[in-house]
Amino acid sequence: MLEQKEKEKIDHILKKYDYEKSKVISIMQEVQKEYHYLPQEILCYLAKELGISEAKIYGVATFYENFSLEKKGKYLIKVCDGTACHVRKSVPILEEFRKILNVTPEKPTTEDGMFTVETVSCFGACGLAPVCTINDEVHPAMTPEKVRTLLAELKEGIDEN
């Protein structure tokens, strides 16, 4: 069951879209913005309020790459693997992130819940290739070298806190 405070938050989003079934994707996007992923209880609540089946909403959530049913780390690292980035060697960058953070495509989030590493099919920033984002901050012309410094800086920040 959802807590009252969370329920209010979701109700607010639902109201904004007039409880309209056809707006389910926008509603889910707003929920994901809030929680960085789609918690199961919230999807069930949405299904009930919008009058669609839980199986249907699960279908929508799994259809789109951008929706996540898994909890994300505090720092969400997205490495572009579009054509331009790929030919400019995005794979070693991705591998460097995964190696240092000890994550895999199946288990993309670190044990401590701080980092999640994902790939994106194209950011549309091919001029900056190879590119990655960390919590929506864009890092152009990446190299494995830069990956090491970036992660070291972030980890330092965490330790200081």
């Binding site: 999807l43 199986a55 249907k56 909403i57 699960y58 279908g59 259809f63």
Partner: peptide, 14 residues
């Protein structure tokens, strides 16, 4: 309902 996409598509429960 259908879940996932393309070659990974399956009929699934919620």
């Amino acid at each position: 309902d259908f879940a996932h996409r393309g070659s990974k598509m399956v009929v699934s429960t919620a």
